[in-house]
Write a protein that binds this DNA or RNA. Sequence first.
DNA 1: TGATTATATAACCAATTGGTTTTCATTTGT
DNA 2: ACAAATGAAAACCAATTGGTTATATAATCA
Lengths: 111, 111
Amino acid sequence: MASDKLSLIFSALADPTRRAILAALALGPMPVGEIAKPFDMSEPAVIKHLKVLERAGLVETDRKGQMRPRSLNAQPLAEASSWVEQYRQFWETSFDQLDAYLEELQAGEQE
Amino acid sequence: MASDKLSLIFSALADPTRRAILAALALGPMPVGEIAKPFDMSEPAVIKHLKVLERAGLVETDRKGQMRPRSLNAQPLAEASSWVEQYRQFWETSFDQLDAYLEELQAGEQE
DNA sequence: TGATTATATAACCAATTGGTTTTCATTTGT
DNA sequence: ACAAATGAAAACCAATTGGTTATATAATCA
């Protein structure tokens, strides 16, 4: 996998388990045990997902006694958002289809 | 990799080569040879990237004689955008930190 | 101190990814 | 018909992913 920031973020989001973890953490910080509960997989598997999210900067770890509660840091999503938003015009006005049509017209004229 | 739609989209975006391909196609449809030119990798490698983008619905293939020009379809990005936008409040107002604080207050009251 | 709880690490494994080179298929031009 | 050009497919490979179980570490409790 590419290790630039944006790739790490998109890659972290490319898994339903990880997106569900983010949704849970949106309600507030939570210890690992509680994060893992809803998932049909071992805790180590969930910890691996958390590490992916941490590497993308989306999750942070705290230390409360013997627990290491995780919390959401949505900041990196701003970057993802601004990348995606570059393309908004292309889907909003079906500009892509219009563009393809215009290209065809133009190609026709050139021949 | 997970094969739900959103995962396919985010996963397709999680690579700089693929994002560059989308940027190129935003300027208009383009045959494979031209798409591949700027990249320091073989054409089959680029075709593989194109297949990933197609599977996510972001790229479509046409047929113009012996060429198969690809074009951008940004529609799936609308879905990615709306997922990310769910979290906008969390990064815009540092709401996550405020929320964590409120959670703690509330937890204190309940005990 | 010793047991329990919460989390992390290690070692392992099958499947996927992202690249390669080689070969094949299709369309065009002579 | 044949050569050239464009694109796709196949076979291969190393590294990564996403899971497992077993073991280790750290903090709390009795």
